[in-house]
Write a protein that binds this DNA or RNA. Structure first.
Ligand SMILES: [Zn+2]
Ligand SMILES: [Zn+2]
Ligand SMILES: [Zn+2]
Ligand SMILES: [Zn+2]
Lengths: 163, 163
DNA sequence: ACACCTCCTGTTATGAGATAACATAACCGG
DNA sequence: CCGGTTATGTTATCTCATAACAGGAGGTGT
Protein backbone atom coordinates (compact mmCIF):
# COMPACT_ATOMS: atom_id res chain seq x y z
CA UNK A 1 0.00 0.00 0.00
CA UNK A 2 0.98 3.60 -0.26
CA UNK A 3 2.21 3.73 -3.78
CA UNK A 4 1.86 7.47 -3.44
CA UNK A 5 2.65 9.47 -0.37
CA UNK A 6 1.54 12.99 0.31
CA UNK A 7 3.74 14.38 2.95
CA UNK A 8 3.54 18.13 3.20
CA UNK A 9 6.30 20.21 1.76
CA UNK A 10 9.22 21.00 3.78
CA UNK A 11 12.00 19.51 5.67
CA UNK A 12 13.88 22.65 6.37
CA UNK A 13 11.92 24.76 8.79
CA UNK A 14 12.40 28.06 7.05
CA UNK A 15 13.90 30.88 9.06
CA UNK A 16 11.86 33.43 10.97
CA UNK A 17 12.31 36.35 13.26
CA UNK A 18 15.69 36.68 14.84
CA UNK A 19 17.18 33.65 13.11
CA UNK A 20 16.23 35.21 9.79
CA UNK A 21 17.67 38.57 10.77
CA UNK A 22 20.83 36.94 11.95
CA UNK A 23 21.29 35.12 8.67
CA UNK A 24 20.68 38.29 6.70
CA UNK A 25 23.11 40.17 8.90
CA UNK A 26 25.76 37.55 8.33
CA UNK A 27 25.22 37.90 4.59
CA UNK A 28 25.67 41.65 4.85
CA UNK A 29 28.94 41.15 6.65
CA UNK A 30 30.25 38.72 4.10
CA UNK A 31 29.35 41.17 1.37
CA UNK A 32 31.02 44.07 3.14
CA UNK A 33 34.17 42.02 3.49
CA UNK A 34 34.44 41.65 -0.27
CA UNK A 35 33.25 45.05 -1.44
CA UNK A 36 30.02 43.60 -2.65
CA UNK A 37 26.69 45.25 -1.96
CA UNK A 38 23.68 43.43 -0.57
CA UNK A 39 21.22 45.89 -2.02
CA UNK A 40 17.51 45.96 -1.27
CA UNK A 41 16.27 43.66 -4.02
CA UNK A 42 19.11 41.20 -3.41
CA UNK A 43 18.42 41.17 0.27
CA UNK A 44 14.72 40.72 -0.31
CA UNK A 45 15.22 37.70 -2.57
CA UNK A 46 17.62 36.14 -0.10
CA UNK A 47 15.07 36.74 2.62
CA UNK A 48 12.37 34.97 0.61
CA UNK A 49 14.66 32.02 0.04
CA UNK A 50 15.63 31.78 3.69
CA UNK A 51 12.02 32.00 4.84
CA UNK A 52 10.89 29.20 2.60
CA UNK A 53 10.98 25.54 3.46
CA UNK A 54 11.35 24.20 -0.05
CA UNK A 55 12.99 25.11 -3.36
CA UNK A 56 11.44 28.25 -4.80
CA UNK A 57 10.66 28.86 -8.45
CA UNK A 58 11.77 32.16 -9.89
CA UNK A 59 8.19 33.21 -10.54
CA UNK A 60 7.19 32.31 -7.01
CA UNK A 61 9.81 34.76 -5.82
CA UNK A 62 8.59 37.30 -8.35
CA UNK A 63 5.05 36.96 -7.04
CA UNK A 64 6.09 37.18 -3.39
CA UNK A 65 8.60 39.97 -3.82
CA UNK A 66 6.50 43.02 -3.00
CA UNK A 67 5.49 43.78 0.57
CA UNK A 68 1.81 44.17 -0.26
CA UNK A 69 1.36 41.53 -2.89
CA UNK A 70 2.88 43.56 -5.67
CA UNK A 71 4.96 41.30 -7.85
CA UNK A 72 8.44 42.22 -9.02
CA UNK A 73 9.46 42.43 -12.65
CA UNK A 74 11.27 39.27 -13.75
CA UNK A 75 14.70 40.86 -14.32
CA UNK A 76 14.71 42.19 -10.77
CA UNK A 77 14.54 38.71 -9.33
CA UNK A 78 16.74 37.02 -11.92
CA UNK A 79 19.46 39.59 -11.35
CA UNK A 80 19.27 39.10 -7.63
CA UNK A 81 19.46 35.34 -8.03
CA UNK A 82 22.48 35.68 -10.27
CA UNK A 83 24.19 37.76 -7.61
CA UNK A 84 23.26 35.39 -4.80
CA UNK A 85 24.52 32.42 -6.76
CA UNK A 86 27.76 34.17 -7.62
CA UNK A 87 28.46 34.85 -3.96
CA UNK A 88 27.38 31.42 -2.85
CA UNK A 89 24.31 32.54 -0.93
CA UNK A 90 21.97 30.53 -3.10
CA UNK A 91 22.02 27.60 -5.48
CA UNK A 92 20.00 26.79 -8.52
CA UNK A 93 18.66 23.25 -8.76
CA UNK A 94 18.72 22.55 -12.46
CA UNK A 95 16.40 19.60 -12.46
CA UNK A 96 13.70 21.62 -10.73
CA UNK A 97 14.24 25.07 -12.23
CA UNK A 98 14.23 26.26 -8.66
CA UNK A 99 16.42 27.97 -6.12
CA UNK A 100 17.43 27.33 -2.53
CA UNK A 101 19.46 29.31 -0.04
CA UNK A 102 22.84 27.81 0.73
CA UNK A 103 22.53 25.78 3.91
CA UNK A 104 26.22 25.16 4.29
CA UNK A 105 28.10 27.91 6.00
CA UNK A 106 31.30 29.25 4.64
CA UNK A 107 32.30 30.49 1.26
CA UNK A 108 31.52 29.38 -2.18
CA UNK A 109 31.64 25.66 -2.63
CA UNK A 110 30.60 22.83 -4.89
CA UNK A 111 27.00 22.00 -4.20
CA UNK A 112 25.14 18.73 -4.30
CA UNK A 113 21.53 17.94 -3.55
CA UNK A 114 19.40 15.09 -2.40
CA UNK A 115 15.94 15.77 -3.78
CA UNK A 116 12.85 13.96 -2.56
CA UNK A 117 10.41 13.20 -5.38
CA UNK A 118 7.65 12.79 -2.85
CA UNK A 119 7.71 15.85 -0.60
CA UNK A 120 9.90 18.12 -2.69
CA UNK A 121 12.58 18.56 -0.08
CA UNK A 122 16.06 19.40 -1.32
CA UNK A 123 18.84 18.65 1.13
CA UNK A 124 22.20 20.15 0.41
CA UNK A 125 25.20 18.10 1.34
CA UNK A 126 28.94 18.39 1.09
CA UNK A 127 29.93 16.15 -1.75
CA UNK A 128 33.16 14.27 -2.13
CA UNK A 129 34.00 14.62 -5.79
CA UNK A 130 37.40 13.02 -5.61
CA UNK A 131 36.48 10.13 -7.89
CA UNK A 132 34.82 12.30 -10.53
CA UNK A 133 37.57 14.89 -10.52
CA UNK A 134 40.08 12.16 -11.10
CA UNK A 135 38.05 10.92 -14.06
CA UNK A 136 37.84 14.44 -15.46
CA UNK A 137 41.56 15.01 -15.17
CA UNK A 138 42.20 11.72 -16.88
CA UNK A 139 40.02 12.90 -19.76
CA UNK A 140 42.02 16.12 -20.03
CA UNK A 141 39.34 18.37 -18.61
CA UNK A 142 39.99 21.32 -16.36
CA UNK A 143 36.90 21.40 -14.19
CA UNK A 144 35.62 24.69 -12.83
CA UNK A 145 32.27 23.73 -11.34
CA UNK A 146 30.38 20.56 -10.62
CA UNK A 147 26.73 20.08 -9.82
CA UNK A 148 25.19 16.86 -8.64
CA UNK A 149 21.51 16.19 -8.15
CA UNK A 150 20.29 12.90 -6.74
CA UNK A 151 16.58 12.10 -6.93
CA UNK A 152 14.84 9.69 -4.62
CA UNK A 153 12.93 9.56 -1.39
CA UNK A 154 13.85 11.17 1.88
CA UNK A 155 13.79 9.27 5.17
CA UNK A 156 10.35 10.57 6.13
CA UNK A 157 8.82 9.67 2.78
CA UNK A 158 10.40 6.22 2.76
CA UNK A 159 8.81 5.38 6.09
CA UNK A 160 5.70 3.20 6.02
CA UNK A 161 2.45 5.12 5.70
CA UNK A 162 0.69 5.70 9.01
CA UNK A 163 -2.86 5.58 7.61
CA UNK B 1 46.14 36.84 -24.98
CA UNK B 2 43.62 34.15 -25.66
CA UNK B 3 41.20 34.96 -22.91
CA UNK B 4 38.59 33.58 -25.25
CA UNK B 5 39.01 30.63 -27.50
CA UNK B 6 36.83 29.82 -30.46
CA UNK B 7 37.30 26.22 -31.27
CA UNK B 8 34.60 24.90 -33.51
CA UNK B 9 31.88 22.77 -32.05
CA UNK B 10 32.29 19.16 -31.76
CA UNK B 11 34.38 16.54 -30.27
CA UNK B 12 32.24 13.61 -31.15
CA UNK B 13 32.32 13.08 -34.86
CA UNK B 14 28.62 12.44 -35.35
CA UNK B 15 27.59 9.23 -37.01
CA UNK B 16 27.01 8.87 -40.73
CA UNK B 17 26.16 6.25 -43.29
CA UNK B 18 26.64 2.70 -42.19
CA UNK B 19 27.76 3.58 -38.67
CA UNK B 20 24.54 5.51 -38.22
CA UNK B 21 22.45 2.69 -39.64
CA UNK B 22 24.20 0.23 -37.43
CA UNK B 23 23.51 2.27 -34.33
CA UNK B 24 19.85 2.65 -35.27
CA UNK B 25 19.61 -1.06 -35.97
CA UNK B 26 21.06 -1.84 -32.57
CA UNK B 27 18.48 0.44 -30.99
CA UNK B 28 15.70 -1.39 -32.84
CA UNK B 29 16.97 -4.67 -31.51
CA UNK B 30 17.12 -3.43 -27.95
CA UNK B 31 13.57 -2.18 -28.27
CA UNK B 32 12.33 -5.44 -29.74
CA UNK B 33 13.87 -7.30 -26.85
CA UNK B 34 11.78 -5.38 -24.35
CA UNK B 35 8.48 -5.06 -26.21
CA UNK B 36 9.11 -1.39 -26.86
CA UNK B 37 8.55 0.20 -30.23
CA UNK B 38 11.07 2.40 -31.98
CA UNK B 39 8.45 4.19 -34.03
CA UNK B 40 9.16 6.61 -36.86
CA UNK B 41 9.31 9.86 -34.88
CA UNK B 42 11.35 8.25 -32.12
CA UNK B 43 13.74 6.80 -34.63
CA UNK B 44 14.02 10.12 -36.41
CA UNK B 45 14.89 12.00 -33.24
CA UNK B 46 17.44 9.39 -32.27
CA UNK B 47 18.92 9.70 -35.75
CA UNK B 48 19.23 13.46 -35.39
CA UNK B 49 20.96 13.06 -32.05
CA UNK B 50 23.37 10.45 -33.36
CA UNK B 51 24.23 12.53 -36.44
CA UNK B 52 25.09 15.57 -34.40
CA UNK B 53 28.44 16.34 -32.87
CA UNK B 54 27.22 18.41 -29.97
CA UNK B 55 24.28 18.61 -27.57
CA UNK B 56 21.09 19.45 -29.39
CA UNK B 57 18.39 21.78 -28.16
CA UNK B 58 14.83 20.52 -28.40
CA UNK B 59 13.91 23.25 -30.86
CA UNK B 60 16.92 22.44 -33.02
CA UNK B 61 15.54 18.94 -33.29
CA UNK B 62 12.09 20.33 -34.00
CA UNK B 63 13.47 22.45 -36.81
CA UNK B 64 15.51 19.63 -38.30
CA UNK B 65 12.89 16.95 -37.93
CA UNK B 66 11.23 17.02 -41.34
CA UNK B 67 12.97 15.61 -44.37
CA UNK B 68 12.44 18.74 -46.47
CA UNK B 69 12.88 21.41 -43.89
CA UNK B 70 9.42 21.04 -42.43
CA UNK B 71 9.62 21.41 -38.67
CA UNK B 72 7.89 19.03 -36.30
CA UNK B 73 5.35 20.10 -33.74
CA UNK B 74 6.95 20.43 -30.28
CA UNK B 75 5.08 17.56 -28.61
CA UNK B 76 6.29 15.17 -31.30
CA UNK B 77 9.90 15.77 -30.40
CA UNK B 78 9.40 16.08 -26.65
CA UNK B 79 7.55 12.77 -26.59
CA UNK B 80 10.29 11.10 -28.55
CA UNK B 81 12.92 12.51 -26.22
CA UNK B 82 11.00 11.28 -23.22
CA UNK B 83 10.93 7.79 -24.72
CA UNK B 84 14.61 7.85 -25.64
CA UNK B 85 15.55 8.98 -22.17
CA UNK B 86 13.40 6.34 -20.55
CA UNK B 87 15.12 3.61 -22.50
CA UNK B 88 18.57 5.07 -22.01
CA UNK B 89 19.17 5.99 -25.64
CA UNK B 90 19.53 9.65 -24.85
CA UNK B 91 20.29 11.92 -21.95
CA UNK B 92 19.15 15.39 -21.08
CA UNK B 93 21.84 17.80 -19.93
CA UNK B 94 20.04 19.97 -17.44
CA UNK B 95 22.51 22.80 -17.35
CA UNK B 96 22.28 23.23 -21.12
CA UNK B 97 18.62 22.40 -21.75
CA UNK B 98 19.97 20.07 -24.41
CA UNK B 99 20.05 16.42 -25.34
CA UNK B 100 22.72 13.96 -26.37
CA UNK B 101 22.61 10.37 -27.52
CA UNK B 102 24.00 7.92 -25.03
CA UNK B 103 27.59 7.18 -25.92
CA UNK B 104 28.02 4.36 -23.47
CA UNK B 105 26.84 1.03 -24.68
CA UNK B 106 24.70 -1.20 -22.59
CA UNK B 107 21.52 -0.62 -20.72
CA UNK B 108 20.21 2.21 -18.71
CA UNK B 109 22.79 3.71 -16.40
CA UNK B 110 23.61 6.72 -14.30
CA UNK B 111 25.00 9.41 -16.52
CA UNK B 112 27.62 12.04 -15.90
CA UNK B 113 29.00 14.69 -18.22
CA UNK B 114 32.08 16.76 -18.70
CA UNK B 115 30.96 19.90 -20.48
CA UNK B 116 33.38 22.27 -22.17
CA UNK B 117 32.38 25.92 -21.73
CA UNK B 118 34.51 26.85 -24.69
CA UNK B 119 33.58 24.51 -27.53
CA UNK B 120 30.34 23.13 -26.17
CA UNK B 121 31.44 19.52 -26.18
CA UNK B 122 29.74 17.21 -23.72
CA UNK B 123 31.63 14.04 -22.95
CA UNK B 124 29.75 11.32 -21.20
CA UNK B 125 31.68 9.24 -18.73
CA UNK B 126 30.99 6.39 -16.37
CA UNK B 127 30.82 7.93 -12.95
CA UNK B 128 31.77 6.34 -9.68
CA UNK B 129 29.09 7.51 -7.30
CA UNK B 130 30.18 5.38 -4.38
CA UNK B 131 31.01 8.32 -2.16
CA UNK B 132 27.81 10.24 -2.89
CA UNK B 133 25.60 7.20 -2.54
CA UNK B 134 27.12 6.54 0.84
CA UNK B 135 26.37 10.11 1.87
CA UNK B 136 22.79 9.78 0.65
CA UNK B 137 22.23 6.56 2.54
CA UNK B 138 23.62 8.13 5.66
CA UNK B 139 21.08 10.93 5.27
CA UNK B 140 18.27 8.41 4.99
CA UNK B 141 17.64 8.90 1.29
CA UNK B 142 16.75 6.16 -1.12
CA UNK B 143 18.30 7.34 -4.33
CA UNK B 144 16.71 6.45 -7.65
CA UNK B 145 18.71 8.55 -10.12
CA UNK B 146 21.76 10.74 -10.03
CA UNK B 147 22.96 13.27 -12.54
CA UNK B 148 26.30 14.99 -12.46
CA UNK B 149 27.43 17.80 -14.72
CA UNK B 150 30.96 19.15 -14.53
CA UNK B 151 31.77 22.39 -16.35
CA UNK B 152 35.20 23.38 -17.47
CA UNK B 153 37.52 23.18 -20.44
CA UNK B 154 38.28 20.16 -22.53
CA UNK B 155 41.82 19.15 -23.41
CA UNK B 156 41.71 20.85 -26.82
CA UNK B 157 40.40 24.12 -25.43
CA UNK B 158 42.91 24.14 -22.58
CA UNK B 159 45.81 23.92 -25.02
CA UNK B 160 47.68 27.15 -25.75
CA UNK B 161 46.23 29.17 -28.61
CA UNK B 162 48.03 28.68 -31.89
CA UNK B 163 47.52 32.23 -33.15
C1' DA C 1 30.79 70.93 -5.21
C1' DC C 2 31.71 69.05 -9.71
C1' DA C 3 32.58 65.92 -13.39
C1' DC C 4 33.26 61.29 -14.17
C1' DC C 5 32.95 56.40 -14.11
C1' DT C 6 30.89 52.15 -12.58
C1' DC C 7 27.54 49.39 -10.86
C1' DC C 8 22.80 48.64 -10.03
C1' DT C 9 17.90 49.27 -10.90
C1' DG C 10 13.31 50.01 -13.41
C1' DT C 11 10.73 49.01 -17.41
C1' DT C 12 9.12 47.21 -21.78
C1' DA C 13 9.15 43.69 -24.77
C1' DT C 14 10.40 39.36 -26.53
C1' DG C 15 12.66 34.90 -26.91
C1' DA C 16 13.31 30.04 -25.47
C1' DG C 17 11.67 25.82 -23.39
C1' DA C 18 7.93 22.73 -22.29
C1' DT C 19 3.22 20.90 -21.64
C1' DA C 20 -2.19 20.51 -21.41
C1' DA C 21 -5.94 18.87 -23.70
C1' DC C 22 -8.39 16.44 -26.98
C1' DA C 23 -9.13 14.08 -31.31
C1' DT C 24 -7.42 10.43 -34.37
C1' DA C 25 -4.83 6.48 -35.73
C1' DA C 26 -1.99 2.27 -35.29
C1' DC C 27 -1.14 -2.01 -32.81
C1' DC C 28 -2.30 -6.23 -30.51
C1' DG C 29 -4.64 -9.90 -28.19
C1' DG C 30 -8.83 -12.48 -28.06
C1' DC D 1 -13.89 -8.07 -36.08
C1' DC D 2 -13.99 -5.94 -31.51
C1' DG D 3 -12.16 -3.55 -27.68
C1' DG D 4 -8.26 -2.07 -24.87
C1' DT D 5 -3.90 0.11 -25.09
C1' DT D 6 -0.41 2.85 -26.84
C1' DA D 7 1.22 6.36 -29.94
C1' DT D 8 0.51 10.32 -32.89
C1' DG D 9 -1.39 14.85 -34.77
C1' DT D 10 -2.85 19.39 -33.68
C1' DT D 11 -4.00 23.61 -31.32
C1' DA D 12 -3.22 26.47 -27.81
C1' DT D 13 -1.06 27.86 -23.81
C1' DC D 14 2.02 27.86 -20.07
C1' DT D 15 6.48 28.45 -17.68
C1' DC D 16 11.09 30.10 -17.64
C1' DA D 17 14.55 33.51 -18.86
C1' DT D 18 16.86 37.44 -21.19
C1' DA D 19 17.68 41.61 -24.47
C1' DA D 20 17.79 46.33 -24.63
C1' DC D 21 17.81 50.86 -22.98
C1' DA D 22 16.93 54.67 -19.79
C1' DG D 23 17.76 56.40 -15.29
C1' DG D 24 19.59 56.46 -10.44
C1' DA D 25 22.91 55.57 -6.60
C1' DG D 26 27.50 55.39 -5.08
C1' DG D 27 32.01 56.06 -5.22
C1' DT D 28 36.81 58.81 -6.81
C1' DG D 29 39.73 62.52 -7.79
C1' DT D 30 40.13 67.43 -8.30
ZN1 LIG E 1 25.60 25.69 -0.53
ZN1 LIG F 1 10.25 13.39 1.22
ZN1 LIG G 1 24.60 7.21 -21.42
ZN1 LIG H 1 36.46 22.49 -25.64
Amino acid sequence: MGAECHHPDGVHPGLKGSALNHALGAAEQRCAATQERLTAPRRRVLELLLESNSPQKAYDLIAAFGAHGEPAKPPTVYRALEFLERLGFAHRIESLNAYVPCRIDGQSHRAAFLICDCCGAADEFEPDFTAQLAAATKAGYQVSTITLEARGRCAACSAPASS
